[in-house]
Amino acid sequence: MKLGRIARKTIGALAILLVFGLVKAPLENGMTRRYVESGLIAEVAATELSSAVGQSTMLAVLGGLRPLVAIYTTLHAFDAWSFREWDTVERDYRLITTMMPEDIDSWVTGSWHMAYNASASARYDDPSVPEAVAEKNGRDWMLKGVAFIKKGIQQNPESAKLHEELARIYWKDKLDEPCLAAEEYQESLKLGPTKTFIRRFYGYFLSKCPGHEREAYDYLMDLYREGKKQRLPSLISRIKAMEEALKIPQAERIPDPDPDREIRKEYPNAQLPFD
């Protein structure tokens, strides 16, 4: 008798829940789709993530504790960084960005570790490594940083900051790719918000890109004509260099003194920005 009642109740309860499930499914699926489209719910790459983390971490990530797992992994990466364990730092940042692909700062920090810290460490930390090998290893880390941030751009195509950081890697240190740097600054400008220094940087690197000197000179002159706020020593010095390179007639040259010349008088071997 009692068993019969329990069975009847169980079937009844399951039936109500099933009917409710059928009714709410389209509503819930629609909401999930809309939230994913508007970026309110992150689409975690489950396959990629499950191969990188344990089951319990995977559950925590899916269970709404993604940011907490990311904080823990960031602390872990910080620890690895202080011991110069670059492979661990790389793995941790790949994990963080898999968990939180929308977090621009993590893409930036990860690429910074690879392209700057790991790269410099590979070049200079071990004197027993032959110079050519150290140089190659350093460059490899820089290229890893570039590939990492490019993946970030792929996942966040609207981020101006990622383009700005990629441009910085292209011109920093020994990668020396002024054309690519100019291209990335231009992308960053398209996406905004416009930062005045990025406009100048775009002009500076365009001026170093072979075949674009005249275009760069016109662009820099437009900035110069905007008035005092753009007439920084770096702009004036770059225009002066372009005037020489393009053999601009004296009458068309800007009247300002070349700030680099003053510095070079005192420090002839000084390495100046954008040299």
Partner: peptide, 11 residues
């Protein structure tokens, strides 16, 4: 999962 909007609102 629908209620996990918190993470990105905070972001």
């Amino acid at each position: 999962r629908v209620f996990n909007v918190t993470e990105n609102i905070v972001g």
